[in-house]
């Protein structure tokens, strides 16, 4: 049996698929930014000495990391509107789900970064009369930020792939476009393989870019 591959279909639909890339990018970039901000706050709560802050942050991180993103998307898009009685907006729900999800992973990245800073740094800062907040802001976080850049980059790449899940609630990202292509052309293999290759091209590009940033950081020293 000869393999029935149709390259022409793939080429024909390529521009159509590429229109989904910008949506994929939008979700990835926006949820990455929200995740960075929210993640930092959660990380600070997570390492707080006060259980009032620590416990909810810990529970949040555990819940998000211990449940599938798909379940989280369904919960936000179908679950909450049902019990609170409002009309779901796919675009917002997708962004919220991705942001909340990445925030939990980011929080753990920040925490690892902060905890990797020598204890003596906090002590030196406090011994000069700085408050905990000042010591964090001027001494600990600037050092931690440099160390979290590599894992943050990995998180960005993971997010790029996971954003494909927003297609389940009808968002027209790259994944959704390949669904549509498969439906219209009846060429499922060509549709999904082409979109997979596009994802691969994107993740490889970012991996390279990240590698370059890391090398640059290494050569200009200061940890």
């Amino acid at each position: 049996m000869a393999l029935d591959l149709n390259l022409d279909v793939a080429l024909k639909y390529l521009p159509f698929l590429l229109t989904g890339v910008s949506t994929t990018f939008e979700y990835t970039a926006l949820s990455f930014i929200f995740g960075c901000i929210l993640g930092l706050l959660i990380a600070l709560g997570r390492i707080s000495k006060s259980a009032v802050f620590r416990t909810p942050c810990l529970a949040y991180i555990d819940f998000i990391r211990g449940t599938p993103l798909l379940a989280q998307i369904y919960l936000i898009h179908f679950g909450f509107p049902q019990i609170f009685g409002y009309k779901p907006v796919g675009y917002i729900d997708a962004l919220v789900a991705l942001s909340l999800n990445s925030a939990a992973y980011m929080a753990e990245i920040y925490r690892a970064g902060i905890e990797s800073i020598d204890r003596g740094q906090m002590e030196a800062a406090r011994s000069l009369g700085m408050t905990y907040g000042q010591a964090m802001r001027y001494v600990i976080l600037p050092q931690a930020f440099r160390r979290v850049i590599p894992p943050m980059g990995n998180e960005f790449i993971a997010l790029l792939k996971e954003s494909s899940l927003v297609s389940v609630i009808g968002m027209e990202d790259l994944m959704m476009k390949s669904n549509m292509m498969a439906g219209r052309s009846f060429r499922a293999f060509e549709a999904y393989f082409t979109s997979a290759l596009i994802y691969l091209a994107l993740t490889l590009t970012f991996t390279r870019l990240l590698g370059r940033i890391e090398r640059r950081m290494k050569t200009d020293g200061r940890s």
Binding site: D118, R126, S127, L128, M130, R222, S223
Partner: peptide, 29 residues
Amino acid sequence: NHVRRWVGMVFQHFNLFPHLTALQNITLA
């Protein structure tokens, strides 16, 4: 925090802030 302003401490392992220059280490507090 007020008391620590006028109680200086010097550590065995220096604990300088590595992301700041010598002068910035001094002027931060």
